[in-house]
Design a protein around this nucleic acid. Structure first.
Length: 289
DNA sequence: CGTAAGGTACGTCATGGACG
DNA sequence: CGTCCATGACGTACCTTACG
């Protein structure tokens, strides 16, 4: 075994005591050793390499979206890679319940392969399955503002917006507006609900336009049959709005917790360094006597 | 004082996973 | 398999700050 990664967290524990203040210690050396409550991630590099330790700031007992692993396996850690630890209840996990390494790509927004392989820009474009394809395909649906700005110009010929050749949809609006723009495919494809556009283009005179779409993005006049759909959509949006709020609140709380933990562990680290220093001095004193 | 840049909060959409 | 929920991604509005 050349490299070893262990994550060791105490479990159960009835959650008593502030985990922030009861963090444990890791001993230096090759043998992983965990004391007290903190989950320690000890990383031992190959014998030839200098050893290093990593203390996890994630603790097992705490309500956190990141949790520790129960199935510990050893893994080689090539330089420049990160480790994913799998646990079913965690947000962060791998597909197989084992540790995996991912190569870090320097560019932002670069997708990483979860198969322990680096993903060069060209090598894995077609072989990564529909998700990858979708990601590549997914240049975000342009905003209504942008669409309408373009509508003001009465022409849309922007390939960046996902226009496919031969996929132009004629728009017929219930409002007697004079423009008849061409909507880029995908630009206005939402589920079949009622939409409101605040048309700001010069051609529109700032009108408010309501329209509805079906799945093929053909436009038609909203009627009573849409009322139920509209109500459902509004309910869904309302729920999702609240869910998003709650999600952000939890995320902030989580980040705050992590920051607190970092501060505590930094303090502990400082204290341990000081302790080590004084012990060394004591040892040297006794040695010289 | 006007403006650009950065930060923050929010709403919406798309998606994956859980569940009945 | 359909529905619901949580969450990442994106666009937008608003606020703050630095700068000319």
């Amino acid at each position: 075994m050349d490299g070893m990664v262990e994550e060791n967290g105490t479990s159960g524990g009835a959650g008593s005591g502030d985990p922030l203040t009861s963090a444990g210690q890791a001993t230096a050396g090759s043998t992983p050793h965990v004391v007290a409550v903190t989950s320690i991630v000890q990383l031992t590099l190959p014998a030839q390499a200098p050893s290093a330790q990593v203390q996890s700031v994630i603790q097992p007992n705490q309500q956190s979206v990141i949790q520790t692993a129960s199935n510990i396996q050893s893994v080689q850690l090539p330089k420049g890679n990160v480790i994913l630890v799998s646990k079913p209840s965690s947000v962060i996990h791998t597909t197989q319940g084992t540790l995996q390494t991912l190569q870090i790509k320097p560019e932002p927004n670069t997708l990483m392969s979860a198969q322990g392989q680096s993903c060069s820009d060209d090598s894995c474009s077609d072989d990564e399955g529909p998700k990858r394809k979708y990601r590549e395909m997914l240049t975000r649906r342009p905003s209504y503002r942008k669409i309408l700005n373009d509508l003001g110009g009465a022409e849309i010929a922007d390939n960046r917006m996902g226009t496919k050749p031969g996929c132009e949809n004629e728009v017929s609006l219930s409002s007697p507006l004079s423009f008849a723009p061409v909507i880029p495919a995908g630009a206005l494809q939402t589920e079949g609900g009622l939409h409101t556009l605040a048309v700001s283009g010069a051609a529109s005179g700032g009108a408010i336009v309501q329209y509805a779409t079906n799945q093929d993005a053909q436009f038609y006049v909203p009627g009573p049959m849409l009322e139920d759909q509209t109500r459902k959509r509004e309910l869904r949006l309302l729920k999702n709005r609240e869910a998003a709020r709650e999600c952000r609140r939890k995320k902030k709380e989580y980040i705050k917790c992590l920051e607190n933990r970092v501060a505590v562990l930094e303090n502990q680290n400082k204290a341990l360094i000081e302790e080590l220093k004084s012990l060394k001095e004591l040892y040297c004193q006794q040695k010289t006597e």
